[in-house]
Design a protein around this nucleic acid. Structure first.
Lengths: 206, 206
DNA sequence: TTAGGGTTTGACCGTCCGGTCAGAGACGGA
DNA sequence: TCCGTCTCTGACCGGACGGTCAAACCCTAA
């Protein structure tokens, strides 16, 4: 029996294999979408047989769900880290930079997320309407306070956050398009760092 | 025999049915992705039987391809319309506004496109590396000229275009997330119009 | 009205794919 | 060494799905 309960008294083999499976599943799901991925692909990428894979997870859906639920926290960490007591412009710029770095370091996670939202977020709606919305509203209130205090320009806080998401995730989710347009010599993420610094400096400067 | 050649001497029935199929396919593909969509779903949405659908198109892939190739031109039209002889700031702002309007009026097309790019653009690469790249490079050169003439701020033209894509398409592709965060009373697209006007005004002001 | 093509359908096929199962191997504690 | 549990596998199942086909239906132009 495999124990999927919160605290897992796992053997070495269990830990190694579940990790390999989740890693492989992230690779495949993010590249093919849920429906496009097959258990055979995931099993092969993980170096296991399909029945063996199903020994560790009860179903394809369970693997997907495990990835998504694990992702939510990681994904929101940078926003959570935005400090209401910090220096307003630095806090916003740092949030944006952390988010861009996540796009560079974790493009597969970004695409997994994008795939899910594109399909109408059938397996994430509760998390989005719950945790995510709560957190965004909370941070939006902080930003609004900064704007009212004249520390940053008066812009809609929710859309400011959306613009950070859109611009940073674009470089991960549309990577192939960006690279195809820029050509092989240019470094999208390095340039994006420069460009987005300029963009947001000008947007939030009081 | 159905004629799919460039100029089609179609009967009324043919035109009606191929249109119904493409409309239905757009609905289903954009919501489920290529792999997630089934011919039965498309046929049902089009009000036809599956074999009848396959009388008009040789395969699922062919329908998808027809949609994508038709989409490319529509999608790039606003950028094509950017006039090198026009007033620089107005041209850029109008391009952004047209793009945002397309996100509002054609969210399914936007999601179809996003789905394709996310999967690595297996069926669009030639178009992206060809037409799209050529057009973007051409317009980027125009924008660079405007910047060098001091008509707009000095920003990287390619990334300026990317930012317009990212910000406008975000409201179509991530619609469910945006609405879930904003709540049912707020109008995402109306607010986006305001916000993006401010953002790009500040970005490109010389 | 009727011949001929365009149009539609039910039945069917082969494959892919998620998932099951009985049992074989491997491993560790006593 | 031996036993019990954990781990792994080949063979298989049933449903979904893309696609085919022969035959029936219908529309229209002469």
């Amino acid at each position: 029996m495999v124990d999927i309960s919160p605290q897992r008294p796992q053997t070495r083999i269990q830990r190694r294999n579940t990790e390999a499976i989740l890693e492989a599943a992230l690779e495949v799901f993010s590249a093919q979408g849920f429906r496009g991925a097959t258990l055979d692909q995931i099993a092969q990428a993980a170096g296991l047989s399909k029945p063996n894979l199903l020994y560790y997870f009860p179903s394809k859906e369970a693997i997907h769900l495990e990835l998504l639920s694990g992702l939510m926290d990681v994904w929101l960490a940078p926003l959570r880290a935005m400090d209401p007591e910090g220096e307003p412009r630095a806090e916003i710029m740092n949030y944006m930079r952390r988010k861009l770095e996540m796009s560079r370091e974790m493009p597969r996670e970004s695409r997994l997320f994008a795939n899910e939202i594109l399909q109408g977020a059938p397996r994430m709606m509760e998390g989005i309407e719950g945790d995510l919305r709560t957190l965004v509203d909370e941070k939006a209130a902080v930003i609004r306070g900064w704007a009212e205090a004249g520390k940053i320009a008066a812009v809609d806080p929710h859309h400011l956050i959306f613009s950070i998401w859109a611009l940073t995730q674009h470089y991960a989710d549309f990577d192939v398009q960006v690279r195809a347009v820029l050509g092989p010599e240019r470094d999208p993420f390095a340039e994006a760092g420069q460009f987005l610094d300029t963009l947001f400096e000008r947007l939030i400067a009081p």
